[in-house]
Amino acid sequence: MADLIAQKLMCIKRDRVLFEALDFSLGAKQIVHLKGPNGAGKTSFLRILAGLATATEGVVKYKEKNIESAGHDFYTSTLYIGHKSGLNSALTGIENTQFWANQHGIDISQSEIIALLGMIGLAGLEDLPVAHLSAGQQRRVSLLRLWLKSQARIWLLDEPFTALDVQGVALIEKKIQEHAESGGSVLITSHQALQPHPLKSEFMLEYRF
């Protein structure tokens, strides 16, 4: 049984049809690599699945229910990380993480956050405003959410590897694989090839005129 099902999706952006009659499903223990050329609508597709944007036509269902009516249940069991970091540049890494956790209803202490930031390679930088960090470091702070929201089974990740160095990519990819192995599902866009893994599959979006 798939958790997240999209039926007959159509998306029109700037009066251009990005995709039409698109069916898609995402189930447990799956890593789906969403591929396609620039402008094919990968981000739009991901945002529709995350409930941020609405499709022009078609529905997205979570556990047999439309995501609008599934509401809170849907939002607590999904994690969306987009192009934009979602970090305020005047706040520190700790503050950003804490406010994000608070918004998502996650209880976490400051010392736990510091430990996690150290784990992801930002030891000693926790107290700096995010604006002072490099692009890769900022990305690491926003990807810390993969460790925070444990109740989220569905991960929707839009180009998570942008600006990350080799160790960073390896760290995130390992986390993604562990998540899938423990019963989660991941939909990821990336221009980089993902490491082969038994649970991995690919989904292609073509560019349409």
Binding site: A50, G51, G71, H72, Y80, G82, G86, N88, Q103, H104
Partner: peptide
């Protein structure tokens, strides 16, 4: 403005608050 541009708004929306 800042929330929109740095993506905080979208994270608030997907948090289900």
């Amino acid at each position: 403005r800042d929330d929109y541009h740095d993506g905080s708004t979208e994270q608030m929306l997907v948090s289900g608050m």
